[in-house]
Computed example of a mutant assay.
Amino acid sequence: MQAKAGDFLVIASNHLEQPPRVGFIEEVHGDDGAPPYVVKWEEDGRTTIVFPGSDAHIEQRGQDAAAAH
């Protein structure tokens, strides 16, 4: 997995009723865009360090979405 600051991390939910968890990647600490990532979560505004699993993917949503964070 490779990301850059400004991308979004999306983690699939384990439950059908729940939407995926989405966070704004503020910092990338691995080589060549690899984890860990410092992520600010959309649902509660908390910031955490994340080593994403196989249920996660990276999205690039453009400058407008990144500027909102």
Rank of each mutant, 00 (worst) to 15 (best):
T48I: 10
W41H: 03
Y37G: 02
F51Y: 08
F24Q: 08
V10W: 07
I49K: 06
V10M: 02
Y37T: 00
I25Y: 09
A66V: 07
S13P: 00
V39Q: 01
H69M: 15
F24W: 14
R46W: 06
G30F: 13
P20Q: 06
D64W: 04
G30A: 05
L16W: 08
D55E: 06
E43S: 12
I11S: 06
P20V: 11
A67D: 11
D55I: 08
A66N: 02
P52K: 05
P52S: 03
A66H: 04
R61L: 11
Q2E: 15
E26F: 07
F24V: 14
D44K: 08
A67Y: 04
A68S: 10
P36Q: 07
R46Y: 05
A67G: 10
F24Y: 15
A34P: 00
N14S: 12
Y37K: 03
A56R: 06
Q60P: 00
E43A: 15
A66I: 11
P19I: 13
H69F: 12
E43P: 01
G23R: 05
V50L: 09
K40A: 09
A66M: 10
T48H: 02
Q18C: 00
P20W: 06
G53C: 05
A56T: 05
P20D: 13
L9F: 01
E26Q: 09
T47N: 04
D31H: 13
I25N: 02
R46T: 12
A34V: 03
E27C: 09
H29G: 02
D7F: 01
E59I: 10
S13Y: 13
G23I: 15
G62L: 13
T48Q: 01
Q63E: 10
G33N: 02
A68F: 07
K4F: 00
E17D: 08
P35N: 02
Q60G: 15
D64V: 15
R21F: 07
L16F: 00
V28P: 03
Q18R: 12
Q63W: 08
I49A: 04
D44L: 14
G23H: 03
E43M: 14
D7M: 13
Q60V: 13
V50M: 03
E27V: 14
D44Y: 02
P36V: 02
S13F: 06
G30N: 06
A3F: 08
K4P: 02
I58W: 10
H69C: 14
V10P: 03
A34M: 14
I25V: 11
A65F: 12
G53Q: 05
A65H: 11
V28Q: 04
D7W: 00
P20H: 11
L9M: 03
L16I: 04
G23V: 14
V22E: 07
R61F: 11
I11F: 05
S54V: 15
S13A: 07
R46L: 09
A34G: 00
Q63S: 08
H57I: 00
D7L: 07
G53V: 15
P36C: 04
F51K: 03
D31K: 09
M1T: 01
P19M: 07
E43Y: 12
V22A: 01
V50W: 01
P36N: 03
H57P: 04
L9W: 03
P52G: 01
E17S: 10
V10C: 07
D55V: 07
E42K: 07
P19S: 12
P36F: 09
E17F: 09
H57C: 10
G45M: 15
Q2H: 13
E17V: 00
P20F: 09
R21H: 03
D7T: 11
K40G: 02
